[in-house]
Structures are given as C-alpha cells and as structure tokens.
Computed example of a mutant assay.
Amino acid sequence: MLNLLSALIGLVTLVLMIPAVFPLLGALNWLLVPMALFGAFIGLMSSKKGGQNFCLIVAAFGALRLFLGGGIL
C-alpha cells in the first residue's frame, strides 16, 4: 500500500513539474523536489521499491532543472 502511495505522490509531482520546465517557472521546483523526496521516504517503508525509485528519479529531474536554471529560473 505504501508503494502505491509513493508512486501516486511521484506521479502528482511529475505532473506538477511540467510547467516548471518553462523559463521563469523553475522556482516551483523548490517545492516539488522536497515533495518527491517525501514520496521516496514513504516508499522506503514499503517492501517493494518501485514507487521509491520513481520518486527519486522525479526528484533528480527537478534538481537537475534547478541546477541548470541557476536555482531561480
């Protein structure tokens, strides 16, 4: 059950990250990366690791976007 919840959190975060790819909306990732990491933490408590890995990939994508935009853009 926690794996499903983790995957759901990751999916919602990924959908919310779509507008954050556009210029001047990248600061939204400052809210979304911790949300994805929270989903990974929820997935850590599950015996299956699919949701956790998905959330970590989403968090890495958001962190990469923050890095490329200088943390603001």
Rank of each mutant, 00 (worst) to 15 (best):
L28N: 09
G10Q: 01
L56I: 10
L2N: 01
L32C: 12
T13K: 08
S47T: 15
S47M: 12
M35A: 15
A59G: 04
G69T: 05
W30G: 12
G71V: 02
A7W: 01
T13R: 07
V58E: 01
L11A: 15
M45D: 06
M35D: 02
S47C: 09
A59R: 03
G69I: 05
F54T: 03
G62M: 02
V12S: 11
G69C: 08
V21I: 13
L31N: 05
A59Y: 04
T13F: 08
P34W: 12
V21F: 12
S46M: 11
A7N: 02
L68R: 13
L32T: 07
L11S: 11
P23L: 01
L2P: 00
N3A: 08
L14N: 03
M45Y: 12
G10R: 04
A63W: 09
A59T: 05
G39E: 00
N53A: 13
L14M: 11
M45T: 10
L31F: 14
G62I: 01
G43T: 04
A63S: 15
F22K: 06
G10A: 09
I18H: 00
G69E: 07
F22C: 04
G26Q: 00
M17E: 13
N29M: 09
L4T: 10
A27C: 09
L64C: 14
R65A: 15
F41W: 15
N29V: 02
L44G: 11
T13I: 08
F41L: 15
G70E: 01
K48A: 15
R65K: 14
G70F: 05
L2R: 04
M1W: 14
I57K: 04
Q52F: 02
M45G: 10
I72P: 04
L68K: 13
L73C: 07
F61P: 00
V12D: 10
L4K: 10
A7M: 03
W30R: 07
G50K: 15
I18A: 05
I72H: 08
L25I: 06
L24E: 07
L68W: 09
S6A: 12
G50V: 15
L64E: 08
G71I: 05
L73S: 09
M17G: 03
L24R: 10
L31T: 06
V15Y: 05
A27E: 09
Q52C: 09
L5R: 14
A36I: 02
M17I: 05
L16A: 15
